[in-house]
Simulated scan of single mutants.
Amino acid sequence: MQTHVTEIADRIYRFSTFVPEVAAPAGFTFNQFLIDADQPLLFHCGHRRMFPLIADALARVMPVERLRWVGFGHIEADECGAMNDWLDAAPQAEVAHGMTASMVSLEDMADRPPKALADGTVLDLGGRRVRYIDTPHVPHGWEAGVMYEEVTGTLLCGDLFTHVGDVAPLVSADIVGPAAQAEEVFLASALTPSTAPTIRSLAALRPKTLALMHGSSFNGDCAAALEGLADFYQDRLRATLGA
């Protein structure tokens, strides 16, 4: 495996590792994102076994020990498996996540106490500002959340828009269709009355770039893409309920 580095927005870097054995025959990408600021933030830690690959990739951009913040969407191996490896490699780093994740899991799992963020809290990274947004059960996990970098308009989407394949780093083509196809296979998303409204609230941010954990990042009409994804889940919920 190799981890590739792409700058998807100004000083926001995508680290992508393609694993052909996952979701075969198409394969699957696992992506992390670095916001290179005065206080750098890494969103997604990656699997523990991928840590050497990802750390080497990050070191191409900046020294690993400069890392100040570590965040992710929810508690899952591909999102936080290497969390404590990053804390060990970067002595000043802290995990930053929502109140629920911190209380339920991270106060026990993280080797250093996490910084618990209330919904809407902004971390000033120095040159970049990251807003934490609670998205419980969207796409899954009680403790789920996303981060929005306000200066570049980059939404760190976590598992939203997941799609398969060895894909381009950044596209402006359709990402809703591939995400719908993947959902039909994985059935990974929670369907609740809050699913579509939560995604529509992210569309209201009118982001300029969508940073996806699995698949291509996107710099087309991001609000329209989020509305399209919300429509997809709304239709699925109605079909499930027989409405």
Rank of each mutant, 00 (worst) to 15 (best):
P25H: 04
T162R: 10
M50N: 10
T3A: 05
A180C: 12
H4I: 02
A224Q: 12
E150V: 03
V95Y: 02
E7T: 10
N219E: 11
Q2I: 10
E79R: 09
R11A: 15
S105A: 11
M83G: 06
G73Y: 04
D38Q: 14
I54S: 13
D235Y: 13
A182S: 12
M1I: 03
P25Q: 15
Q92K: 08
F28M: 14
G220I: 07
L212D: 00
V171T: 15
L170G: 13
L170W: 05
S217M: 05
N84L: 08
P197E: 08
S105Q: 10
F51A: 12
A225Q: 14
G120M: 00
R14V: 00
G120Y: 11
A182N: 02
E183D: 08
R48V: 04
G177F: 06
M99E: 14
S189V: 07
F218T: 05
P63Y: 00
I199S: 08
D78V: 00
D124I: 12
S189H: 09
E21D: 10
S201H: 12
L123K: 00
V61A: 07
P114G: 10
L58P: 01
G81R: 00
H4S: 13
S201Y: 01
D56K: 15
P40R: 03
L106P: 09
F232Q: 10
P178M: 06
F161L: 02
L226V: 08
E79W: 03
A230V: 05
G126I: 02
A180W: 04
D159Q: 11
